[in-house]
Amino acid sequence: MDIAEILSYGFMQRALLAGSLIAVLCAVLGCFLVLRRLSLIGDGLAHVTFGSVALALLLKFYAASALFVSLPVVMLCSLGILKLTERARVTGDAAIGIVSSLGIAIGVILASLGGGFTADLFSYLFGNILAISRAEVLLAVVLCATVLLLVTFFYHELVAITFNEELARISGIRTGRISSLLVLLTALTVVLAMKLVGIMLISALLILPSSAALQLARGFRTTLLLAALLGVIAVIGGTFASVMLNIPTGATIVLLNFMIFGLACFGKRLLAQE
C-alpha cells in the first residue's frame, strides 16, 4: 500500500502523532530510569495494573473508568518500589519484582473473590497504536506537555539525584521528593500511555531509545535529546515499515528500536577505535 494513501487515514495520522509524543516522553523518563537501574519499572507497573483491574472490578468501576482505580494504585506502587530501594537495601530490579508479583497475587485473589469480571477490562487498559481516538491524542499531548514541563523545571535536580543521590542530598536537594516525582511521572506515563499504545511498546520505548543514546552521547542533555530523537525515529519508521510489510505496528516499532540500539552499540565501537 502506498505511503501517501495510508497517510490519508486518520488512524495513521493519530498513530504517528500520539506515538511520537509517547516516544519522546518515554525516552526522556527512560534515561533517568535506566541510569537509576529502574529500567524494568514499566514492565513491573504493567503487572501492578493487572492487579488493579481486579480492584476496579471489586469497587464496581467498569470499562474505561477502571483507569480511575488503576492510576492511583499504580502510582502508590511506584512509590512502594522507591521506598524498597531506599529503606530496605533492596536493589531496583528486586524491588520491581517484589512489588509487581505482589500486585499480580493480590489481583488474582481479588478477581477470585469478586467471582469473575464484567468485561474484559484488559482490553480497556491496554490499547493499540492503530486504534487511538482523537480524545486520546489530546490526552497524549497533555501528558507529554505535563511531564516534559516538570522534567524541564526539575532538570538539574533530576540529573543530580541520578548522578549521585548523596551528593545531591548535601547540595540541599530534597532527594526523596525528586525521586518520588520521577517514579510518579513514570507511573502516570505507564498507565496512560499503555491505554494508548499497549504495554509492549511502553516497555520498549522506556528502555531502548535511552540505552541507544547512552552508547553514543557524551553529555546528559545530548543523551536526553538523542534518546527522544531515536524514539521518534523508531515510531515513525516502524509505523511505515509495518505498512509496507503488512505486519503489526507495535511489534515492528519495537524491532526497529532494537535495530537502532544495535547500530548504536556498533557505532560506539567505531567511535572508540578512532
Binding site: M1, Y9, F11, A15, L130, S242, N246, I247, T249
Partner: peptide, 13 residues
Amino acid sequence: DAQTTPSRMAELV
C-alpha cells in the same frame, strides 16, 4: 490477542 496491521485497518475502512 492478535494485533492488526495498518493495511488491514485501511482495508476495513
